[in-house]
């Protein structure tokens, strides 16, 4: 488990990350969301130790993280590229060796990953000869090849087509399956909703929320949607109910409690036919927009 506690980073007068606290538990994927300038990259760089920490700390397995711990992490920086003129296999093997793998093992692992991505025959190509999507596959290989103890990935899915996203998501799930914590940032909320077990929402350097998608969705008002065969205007006059939206036969209301909602349903059945009666689950996007407003 990776723990970020009261992490703060200031650049001169600007506070890029402000007292951020959250956890990245093992075995699940944690999505790190927030707009541009929210502090995602700065936080990840501090976790990886490539940027100094102004205040706060990063914990690993219940203690202060060390350089040796970080060395076992897989990291994919933002705005990345590799050595453009070096061959794919050579530079991945090089990075593997820097991570402590021996030369033979590094080459084998690299070839396994390239095969998985259908890139085996491009192993001897120079990185600059690959398409951007393929370069990204090479970069993720660099992050995951050495059986990392944790994965810190900055926008790993940006610029990938849907099939590539699925392939990469499968790869990441392999790592969560063996208990590895994975933190990845993204501004594509639909993707995060689909792939992540947990979310951390960042805005202006502060953590706004942390939890599962359902946790976040349940934080807003509990709304109920009722569709009748006749006019639904009478709902406004019921006690213990606040109407959020009314469109002739359809009404969205916020009941004070479960009893108030039941009373509305009983009344509706009494008055005529009920087409639908269901809780309104806001999309993560709506929750996020509401939260970061």
């Amino acid at each position: 488990m990776l723990e970020v506690r009261n992490l703060t980073r200031r650049f001169g007068d600007v506070t890029a990350v402000d007292d951020a606290t959250f956890s990245v538990p093992g075995g699940v994927m944690t999505g790190f969301v927030g707009g541009n300038g929210a502090g995602k990259t700065t936080t990840m760089r501090m976790i990886m130790g490539v940027l100094g920490i102004t205040a706060g700390r990063v914990g690993w397995d219940g203690r202060e993280i060390t350089t040796a711990d970080r060395r076992r992490f897989g990291y994919m920086p933002e705005e990345r590229g590799l050595y453009p003129k070096q061959r794919v296999i050579d530079q991945l093997a090089y990075l593997g060796r820097l991570k402590g793998m021996d030369a033979g093992a590094a080459r084998r692992t690299v070839m396994d990953h390239l095969e998985r991505f259908g890139l085996a025959e491009r192993a001897k190509d120079r990185v600059q000869e690959l398409s951007l999507g393929n370069q990204q596959r090479v970069q993720i290989t660099a992050a995951v090849m050495a059986d990392p103890a944790a994965l810190i990935l900055d926008e790993p899915f940006s610029g990938l087509d849907p099939a590539a996203v699925d392939a990469m998501a499968d790869l990441l799930r392999d790592h969560t399956a063996r208990g590895v914590p994975v933190l990845f940032s993204s501004h594509q909320l639909d993707l995060v909703e689909r792939l992540c077990d947990r979310l951390v929402v960042l805005k202006g350097g502060r953590v706004l929320a942390e939890g599962t998608a359902a946790d976040l969705q349940s934080r807003g008002p509990r709304l109920v949607r009722l569709v009748l065969d006749g006019d639904a205007g009478w709902v406004r006059d019921r006690p213990g109910v606040r109407v959020a939206d009314l469109d002739r036969t359809t009404v969205v209301f916020e009941p004070a409690d479960a009893d108030a909602a039941d009373a509305v349903l009983r009344d509706a059945l009494h008055r005529g036919r009920v087409e639908a009666f269901a809780p309104v689950i806001p999309s993560l996007n709506d929750v996020y927009l509401e939260m970061t407003k």
Partner: peptide
């Protein structure tokens, strides 16, 4: 420029 230095710096001193 390629940020590969961040990968290297997180792997070795």
């Amino acid at each position: 420029q390629n940020r590969i230095v961040e990968i290297i710096a997180s792997a070795i001193p």
